[in-house]
Every structure is written in structure tokens, then in C-alpha cells.
Design a protein around this nucleic acid. Structure first.
Length: 289
DNA sequence: AACGATCCCTGTTGGC
DNA sequence: TGCCAACAGGGATCGT
């Protein structure tokens, strides 16, 4: 008897590009123009990639937020003094805006006082996420320089995507997750993209023809846009939530992810689950070829 | 260079 | 009922 591999209903909702973008949009009115009054690091592991442990606190206090950007799954808060407050939500991170006298939610890792009676709270159960404050030079030298173009705001034309896939033998699913090719697609949206494009996840990247790459590109754009419009995917209330605490509603629109054993809404075929590079991949063997 | 494996971490859950 | 291994996964790192 096979162990049931179907993830239960209480899985973590892992933030990908749409979740980070929905977070960015939700934070805009609370952050832009604000001065950072105080900074409290409650779990040191979450502040990483700083030259000195005290840099995060010391660089952040007194700064003013100029604007909020995003590259792939990284949130970039631009500050005065040419500093960059960088956040990655990891697997279980979320950013919340709460009243500054609100109790600390369980697993709160960083609390930032915004000087308007609100706090920004970084809550991250598994601490795969991180925060850091970098100078221009540090940002330029950081791992972010290896990121490909943003999968939503800067999606490369098909011709360029096709060139990047030629001679690649890895499964297209694995290549979609490679942030050096295109930045922002994670496990859920990779599966949703491949279903929209009607391409099987185990196909070698280099085996896609021009028409398939065009469908792939359209699938990336459409799945990410739909995810953003829905405020992201909240699989439960323990992981990803919007900054105001509401859940994203994309879960109900998922075409394949988490639907093993259910039927494909396009062709009626059975949705399968296959492990690719150690990640669950859900796909329809009827219409994804 | 490309690819795959391993590790980090914690809450939940299936199996016994 | 209680214990415990398995599982989820983004990204850094390492071996081949």
C-alpha cells in the first residue's frame, strides 16, 4: 500500500512572485514616505547576509522609505542614504501591518516601528526567509545579481526564452524554478504555467519548439497575473497572508497544484503527482504533452 | 557549465 | 493515546 503523498489541507502556502507582489502593493500606503522609528530583531537567524550583526538595526533606524520594488521573489524597500532594505519571505514568511501596541504574533521575527502608530511585523515560522539592509555596493555584489529578468514586469520575449532553453536537458519544470533564467516562478505557479501551456513537466527544456515556448511564455504571464489579481495563494492561515491579514484567494483557481486524483478541467483526465528535483509536480497526463 | 543532491527549519500528520 | 518519521519547499552550496 502506497503512502498517501497528497499534501494535507494544512500545507504551508509558499510565497512566490504573486504573493510578494500582493504584499508589496498592500504595504505601499503604509511604508512610502514613512520614517523608521525603531527596529526590534526577535530572532537573530532571520537577519542574515549583513557584514556586522548590528548593521541591520543601525542602518534602518531613522531612515525614510522612498519606494517599494520587487525583483522575482525579493522585496526591495528603497531608503534614503542609498540603502536597500531587502526581504525574502522564504517558505513561510509574511509581512503584516498592525497597530504598534498589538501583541507580538507567534513567530514574529522582526518588528519595525513606522512612527504612525503602526508596526511592520515580519512573521516567519520556519525562518527560511530573511531580512537585510545593504548599501548600493553590497546590493550590486549580492546574490540578486544572478537573478534573471522579472517573470512578470520584465518577461523576456519568446525568442530570448527559447535561446536560453536550447540544449538544456533538465526538465522544463526544473528550469522554470531556476531563478537565473526567469525570476519569480515557484513550485505552484510553475505547475499552473505548464498546465496552461499544455506542456508536460518532465519534458527536457531544450526539446520545446518555438510554438511551445510561446505558449510557455503566455502561461507564465497568465498564471502570475491571475495570482496577483487574486491576492496570491493562501493554502492555510499559518503562512502567507496579505499585509492586512486577509488571505489570498487564488487557491480556488488552481488548475493542477494540489489536485492529485481529481479531474482536469480542460480535458477531464486525471491529475497526477510526480516528484521532480525533490519538488511535488502536479500535471494532467491527458492534455500536457 | 549543467545538473542533481543535500541542508537549513518547524508544524502537521499518517502510521503503528 | 502517544511517539516518531515523513513531508512541505526557496535558495545556498557542493560534488560529479
Amino acid at each position: 500500500m502506497r503512502r498517501t503523498p497528497l499534501p494535507g489541507p494544512r500545507r504551508a502556502g509558499v510565497p512566490e512572485l504573486p504573493e510578494v507582489e500582493a504584499t508589496r502593493r498592500g504595504l505601499l500606503p503604509y511604508l512610502v514616505g514613512r520614517r523608521i522609528e525603531h527596529v526590534s530583531v526577535l530572532h537573530p537567524r532571520v537577519v542574515r547576509r549583513q557584514l556586522r550583526p548590528t548593521d541591520f538595526h543601525d542602518r534602518l533606524v531613522g531612515r525614510t522609505v522612498l519606494r517599494l520594488d520587487r525583483h522575482g521573489k525579493f522585496l526591495l524597500v528603497r531608503l534614503d542614504a542609498d540603502l536597500h532594505w531587502v526581504t525574502h519571505l522564504g517558505m513561510s514568511g509574511r509581512l503584516r501591518i498592525v497597530g504598534s501596541n498589538a501583541d507580538l504574533e507567534l513567530h514574529t521575527r522582526v518588528s519595525v516601528g513606522l512612527g504612525d502608530a503602526n508596526d511592520l511585523r515580519f512573521v516567519d515560522t520556519r525562518t527560511f526567509g530573511f531580512m537585510t539592509v545593504w548599501t548600493d555596493a553590497e546590493l550590486a555584489e549580492s546574490s540578486l545579481r544572478r537573478l534573471g529578468r522579472d517573470a512578470f514586469t520584465d518577461l523576456p520575449p519568446s525568442r530570448e526564452l527559447e535561446a536560453g532553453l536550447t540544449n538544456r536537458t533538465a526538465p522544463i519544470k526544473a528550469l522554470l524554478l531556476d531563478q537565473r533564467i526567469v525570476a519569480g516562478v515557484g513550485n505552484i505557479y510553475a505547475d499552473e504555467t505548464l498546465h496552461r501551456a499544455a506542456i508536460a513537466p518532465l519534458r527536457a527544456g531544450g526539446s520545446l519548439d518555438g510554438g511551445e515556448v510561446k505558449r510557455l511564455r503566455a502561461g507564465i504571464r497568465a498564471s502570475l497575473a491571475a495570482g496577483i489579481a487574486a491576492g496570491g495563494t493562501s493554502l492555510d492561515d499559518l503562512a502567507y497572508l496579505l499585509p492586512d491579514g486577509r488571505a489570498g484567494s487564488f487557491l480556488e483557481q488552481l488548475r493542477v497544484y494540489g489536485r492529485e486524483g481529481e479531474s482536469c478541467r480542460r480535458c477531464g483526465g486525471g491529475i497526477r503527482r510526480t516528484v521532480i528535483r525533490g519538488r511535488s509536480s502536479f500535471w494532467c497526463s491527458g492534455c500536457q504533452t
